[in-house]
Design a protein around this nucleic acid. Structure first.
Length: 317
DNA sequence: GTTATTTGACCCGA
DNA sequence: TCGGGTCAAATAAC
């Protein structure tokens, strides 16, 4: 289980490192007269998304601290007891993303998100113009990974698909692939990725953008914002003590009025890489609609690892 | 031959 | 009873 904890730390570190890198990029853009306002706004949104996802990780850990499934590779001890499927439906965390897809990519509403999914069903949904596709993690049988997602094209805008995730990946490959040792974030040129089963590891940006996803809409959430964002226990200067970059964005993040206005963005990596365009999943939302609004997600439950080296700059460089 | 997808049937919860 | 979610056999793709 220790490995799990480390994975979470790595993900969190990567997310924060990405935020730092983006902040640096933004800093460069701020002093560049040729930089467009849209570019700067884009960077700000991505930075905020990073922090949002970091917070989501912490919240999810708090949740999983109580509900974390156990799995063992190749043993019958996996949690994948089919009889429990319906029980797990109610207990597994669930959140929805709205992802704009480029019809030219031919992905037909199945946005790539860095994981290997296997389709196991499709159903016509009452009142919906488009069928809903059901996907589960490719490693479900081997590693007992219970992550699933549902993909359904929006009735209002066929270029938008609603992706509902359930559960989180516990499979090793997914986790490993989600952890890139090279936290370099750049606007990379398009890459050809045609086979998602054998494609090279997604970039850090791709993975971080998708690993925790963007919660633009969640269900069963009625928590008040106060419950969603209690006081953030981090020392903001610990993240970036050298130049105070962390202060600016941490302060911005803590600004409720600002949070109420910003839009989460979730770069759609597959479309990004294939079309060369950075597709932004934009969906107006406030933090009250974040997955952290789930009653099971409360920062108040976050139990920080006291050994976690937040005060060690090496982890963020 | 292996793996992924399709699709009708089945199960469960509301 | 109905709709949503999952299963599993058949089929397709590689």
């Amino acid at each position: 289980m220790e490995r799990v904890i480390n994975w979470e730390q790595h993900n969190l570190i990567n997310e924060l490192a990405q935020g730092k890198e983006l902040a640096k990029q933004l800093s460069d853009h701020l002093v560049s007269s040729s930089s467009s306002r849209e570019t700067r706004q884009f960077l700000v949104e991505k930075i905020l998304s990073c922090y949002q996802k970091s917070l989501a990780m912490l919240n999810y850990d708090a949740f999983m601290g109580e509900h974390r499934p156990t799995f063992s590779i190749g043993t019958s001890g996996s949690p994948n007891n089919e009889g429990d499927v319906y029980k797990k439906r109610k207990t597994m965390p669930r959140w929805t993303e709205q992802v704009r897809v480029n019809s030219d990519t031919g992905l037909e509403g199945h946005p790539e998100d860095g994981y290997n999914w296997r389709k196991y069903g499709q159903k016509e949904i009452l009142g919906a113009n488009y069928p809903r596709g059901y996907y589960r993690c490719t490693h479900r049988n081997v590693q007992g990974c219970l992550a699933t997602k549902q993909v359904q094209r929006s009735d209002q805008d066929p270029t938008v698909v609603e992706v509902t995730y359930r559960g989180r990946h516990t499979c090793i490959q997914a986790r490993n692939s989600a952890i890139s040792p090279t936290p370099i974030v750049k606007e990379e040129p398009p890459k050809e990725t045609t086979n998602r089963q054998e494609k090279p590891k997604p970039s850090l940006e791709t993975l971080l953008s998708s690993k925790w996803g963007l919660s633009v809409k969640t269900e069963n959430l009625d928590a008040r914002q106060d419950d969603v964002f209690p006081s953030f226990p981090f020392s903001t200067t610990a993240v970036e003590p050298e130049n105070g970059e962390g202060d600016y964005f941490a302060d911005a993040l803590m600004d409720d009025s600002f949070l109420d206005k910003f839009y989460f963005c979730a770069p759609n990596n597959a479309q990004t890489s294939e079309s060369g365009l950075t597709e932004i999943v934009s969906a107006p939302t406030s933090v009250t609609n974040s997955p952290m609004g789930d009653p099971a997600f409360s920062l108040g439950k976050v139990d920080f690892d006291l050994d976690f080296p937040f005060d060690n700059p090496d982890f963020f460089s």
